[in-house]
């Protein structure tokens, strides 16, 4: 019961507590409570299915930000082997909101790069809550160029509230750093696979996200602005964040429908944190499959397809006749 539960999980948590109490009582008093337990467990199962199969966008936001959710390093340690972290952008400093280095995916060397959040306040001072400064993006680009040099695929793991909005970040060119990553990721000749594993926070997420294949974990979100930010600007009140989350279409299923992402990677029922090993296994299988598929294409073909994919992004009409693109 150490996992903190979310608002919509209250009923589930209560039932779980009830089952635990009954089990404890049965053990202590040597009573036979198997039947009652089975009934309760069936009810719990139904309740969980009901809750997690129909999550609202704002509930998924809560899961995507869950403090127990696996972060980039958890996936790197779990789904990859032989990880050697590389540090620094060679220009200013090492930004620990971004991690990256060589690793093996089913034996094959890849460059893996991700946003890294901290688990507690102390870690978050180092990791800046997963919000990179320009040097984080420049480190990522340095590592991508390294992968390019040696012809190894690149895997990025996206999980950030956004690029850090601060004085130093602006002085050192946050906009330029993101823009350069977008352009240079477009130009890479090696296979690139990006996975949104938690929060895909706007430009700060996209700066690791221009790739041949973009995948999203089932409960991850990806949006142009946080629901809170959107609500504050368009509805003039933070209280409208549910409406904003709904209106902006930020869930994995929505983005797949819009053609922005290529695949939704399933999570264990209740979210990746309820069974991290399963989440890691699902991610490894999906990423390995896409890398293998991409490696069968020539570098020219990969780039052509990547460019065409981004050239198609968006929906517009041409007057006077309304034509879908």
């Amino acid at each position: 019961m150490s996992t903190p539960h979310l608002e919509f999980e209250k009923d589930i948590a209560e039932l779980e507590a009830q089952i635990a109490r009954l089990q404890a009582m049965a053990r202590k008093q040597g009573l036979e409570a198997g039947r009652e337990l089975r009934v309760l467990e069936r009810r719990l199962e139904a309740l969980r299915l009901e809750a997690y199969r129909n999550l609202t966008p704002v509930e998924r936001v809560q899961l995507a930000r869950h403090p127990k959710r696996p972060y980039a390093l958890d996936y790197i340690e779990g789904a990859f082997t032989d990880f050697v972290e590389l540090h620094g952008d060679r220009l200013f400093r090492d930004d620990e909101a971004v991690v990256g280095g060589w690793a093996r995916l089913e034996g094959r060397t890849v460059m893996v790069i991700g946003h890294q959040k901290g688990r507690d306040m102390k870690q978050n001072l180092r990791r800046n809550f997963g919000m990179p400064h320009p040097e984080g993006y420049r480190k990522a680009l340095r590592l991508m160029r390294l992968a390019e040099k040696f012809g190894h695929p690149i895997v990025t793991l996206i999980d950030t509230p956004g690029a850090y909005p601060g004085i130093g970040a602006e002085e050192r060119g946050q906009g330029e750093a993101i823009a350069m990553n977008l352009r240079e990721m477009a130009r890479l000749r090696v296979p690139t696979v990006a996975v949104v594993i938690g929060e895909g926070g706007s430009g700060g997420a996209l700066a690791l996200g221009v790739a041949d294949r973009v995948l999203m974990l089932e409960n991850a979100t990806y949006s142009v602005i946080s629901p809170e930010g959107c609500a504050a600007i368009l509805w003039k009140t933070n209280a409208a964040k549910d409406k904003a989350a709904e209106a902006m279409k930020i869930t994995a299923a929505d983005l797949a429908a819009l053609g922005v992402i290529d695949e939704v990677v399933p999570e264990p029922l209740g979210g990746a944190h309820t069974d991290p090993a399963q989440a890691v296994a699902n991610l490894r299988a999906a990423v390995a499959r896409h890398v293998a598929e991409l490696e069968r294409l020539s570098p020219e073909e990969r780039r052509r397809r990547r460019w065409e994919k981004y050239e198609r992004m968006g929906v517009w009409r041409e007057e006077p006749a309304a034509v879908a693109p």
């Binding site: 993101i178 823009a179 977008l182 352009r183 240079e184 477009a186 130009r187 706007s202 430009g203 996209l206 996200g209 221009v210 990806y222 949006s223 142009v224 602005i225 959107c230 600007i233 368009l234 209106a247 902006m248 279409k249 930020i250 929505d254 983005l255 819009l258 922005v260 990547r306 460019w307 981004y310 050239e311 992004m313 968006g314 929906v315």
Partner: peptide, 26 residues
């Protein structure tokens, strides 16, 4: 900045325009 009323599609315009500029750059 991006037009929030087009959600993620507005974010993707950053990628789209940067891809176009990558081609020009090359």
């Amino acid at each position: 900045g991006a037009r929030m009323m087009e959600g993620i599609l507005s974010l993707m315009q950053m990628a789209k325009t940067s891809v176009a500029l990558a081609e020009l750059h090359e």
